[in-house]
Amino acid sequence: MGKYLIRRLLWLIPVIIVVSGITFILMHSAPGGPWDRDTTARQVDQNTQRILNEYYGLDKPLWRQYVAYVIGDFNKQGKFVCGLVCGNLGPSYRMRGLTIQQILFMPPEGKNFLYSRFGYSMRLGVFALLFAVAIGIPAGVIAALKQNTIIDYVSLFIVTIGISVPNFVMALFLIILFASTLKWVNIVPRSWDEVSVWVLPTVILGFGTMARTARLMRGSMLEVMRMDYIRTARSKGLAERVVVLRHMIKNSLIPVVTILGPALAALVTGSFIIETMFGFPGMGRAYVTAIGQRDYSMIMGTTLIYAVLIALANLSVDIVYSFLDPRIRLD
């Protein structure tokens, strides 16, 4: 197990190199640069741009910029500035004076880590996943147990909506319903300290995952229900409740766990549409903004954090697997 973990974590290194390489190439293929402004606004003059480029090393050849980002480079004073290998995600070109790690992970004065941009996104993602699991798994189990009844059809209907309607459409619909028509909540909340304002983004973000979880759980249950060992369990005189809880659900969960790991990563990272719509102070919105502004190191840094999160989520799925299914051994 320990060896396996170390090996999997070492695999992160080539993953990071490939992801950062591709991101770097794509980012620099896009026209424009960090100093460009709206054509209507006052432009940064050529001389200032030259000085800024020199200061940030953007005048150097691209390969050298890449090496500088990943490993590090000597700055103007001849001092070595360490890059990604030291955990330095680079300076932001737009929020000057701040590094990317400060922007993403540093909470406002007097608050804890959960109030950083990353913390906000993480909370929203975790809440959405909890919502998806808490509704999706029981819904799938009940639909399977009541197969071909009205309960099954209603849940299938909701599941189909959840899978086929994109979350930004769902978001608009629910905002119109709850914010404009019913006026239960503000469209953009004034403060994220209240619990009630989290409900809408959580539900919208988690809905698709909830639907996929329910559908997969239903299918998996239907398969397990027909297994010989379920008949064996009944032949031993176990109560139906025990047969379902002990013999069916644990076996049915195995395929569902497969999607939950990537789903968590996708929820923590993939919330930028929802974050933008609700004016949510998270990482996703910062990411989208950074892409528009060509804030190179911000784009690199955020992408890499996403990559690492997805890799870790998959790793944790494999670990949970080995607990659920004794036939799977990690080594």
Binding site: M227, D228, Y229, R231, T232, A233, R234, S235, K236, G237, L238, A239, R246, H247, K250, N251, L324, D325, P326, R327
Partner: peptide, 23 residues
Amino acid sequence: RHIRGAQISMVFQDPMTSFNPVL
């Protein structure tokens, strides 16, 4: 339920699939 497994019990054909793999 109180008769199954207590007074009348069964052995099935395929010992590979008749056990729950995760218990």
